[in-house]
Design a protein around this nucleic acid. Structure first.
Lengths: 206, 206
DNA sequence: TGACTTATAGACTACTCGATACATAAGTTC
DNA sequence: GAACTTATGTATCGAGTAGTCTATAAGTCA
């Protein structure tokens, strides 16, 4: 059974993706309704926008959800117990960095850059999914180190949280460096450096 | 000789500092004139604002200059040739991280977070001093590694740019973690981890 | 004192923000 | 066909944006 009523003149799912790119680029507050409307299906009117998405905030939530289900999956390896923990960490770093430098979408990570997306206290709840995602990624890095300790790959005295924070902080910084135009190859080479942190921890006396 | 004309009712230098804190917290675009006016000397009028500072952009420039001359000095060790290069890197990381977590001012680094401060192309020139400062800090880290290589502390085959990017990316990430409320002690411990990157490079075969 | 200089306060400009009312167009269902 | 449902276009809302105009207050200098 087909849907009733006058059909929409634009592709709603495509519109959410376009909105995601705008929010990714400029953040929540700095992306205006005019921008969003202009970039959806070659330009739509205000009532069409509200009929389709409810409000700017609701569209943002959809856009964030869309990001988390697609681009943000580059760090999924952190929760994959079938991958050796060192590989899981390295894979997350390399995949995320590669994605952040890709062309075809804004540079950097929408989740990381979302820190400055809603600077006022009233808007904290809007970016809550981004905050939660950052927290989850940090936990993912820590988890991999803990898994390596449990497996006996890393010594028991290894400080999992400190190591996790090191990897995570590096990755957060990549968003800013990618925005500043640092080459993907340079960032990838620095991951090779960073992974030595893991290797030296392996050699540490028990 | 005293200054002519009606005296200002607020401390101009203090006002620049207050503006700096606001821009630091919310970024350039997201800090409104109303906020700035309300937070200067217990509240000033619009004409007073423009008489004293010229425009929002000019005040921002002064605020950035103020930041660079004060808080941003935490990384000065990177250019101090009297400090051994490893110490210079560690000092920059620890001082900056400590500063970013201090109370009494916004969390994180104004320069790092400035990436999202002016998301539109027309505003690129406004945040240019911040962009330049980020570039300079990256060069500072690379420079320390190069200095260590020249001194024979690190092997000649060390990739200075990769190592520099690793340290710098970590430090950029600290701004986001500090905003997310990660403890200063946890960040400091992760610096201890990160510095092992240097020590393993020292042990590398020539 | 009077001329000069500077800062102040209140009112106002043109513009953009997110969001809404109302009438109409374009489909499906009966 | 008529009833129903949904999307669209025009016009508009009140609030907030950065910034300006005009008049006045408060100081220094001769």
């Amino acid at each position: 059974m087909a849907k009733m009523g006058r059909p929409r003149t634009f592709d709603r799912q495509k519109a959410v993706m376009q909105a995601m790119h705008l929010f990714w680029e400029h953040g929540y507050e700095m992306t205006s309704l005019s921008q969003l409307k202009a970039n959806i299906g070659g330009g739509i009117s205000t009532p069409s926008f509200y009929a389709a998405f409810g409000s700017k905030e609701e569209l943002f939530n959809e856009a964030v959800q869309c990001y988390l289900e697609t681009y943000a999956c580059v760090t999924d390896s952190l929760w994959d117990d079938e991958i050796p923990p060192r590989d899981a960490v390295e894979l997350a770093l390399r995949r995320s960095t590669k994605m952040q430098c890709e062309s075809g979408h804004p540079k950097g990570c929408m989740v990381s850059l979302g820190t400055m997306s809603a600077p006022t206290p009233e808007l904290t709840h809007v970016v809550e999914p981004l905050t939660a995602s950052r927290s989850r990624t940090l936990q993912g890095f820590v988890r991999c180190v803990e898994r390596a300790i449990a497996m006996g790959e890393l010594p028991k005295k290894t400080n999992a949280r400190s190591m996790g924070i090191s990897f995570n902080s590096f990755l957060l910084g990549v968003s800013i460096l990618a925005r500043d135009g640092v080459d993907a190859s340079d960032l990838d080479a620095s991951i090779t450096e960073l992974m030595k942190l893991w290797d030296i921890a392996v050699c540490q006396p028990k």
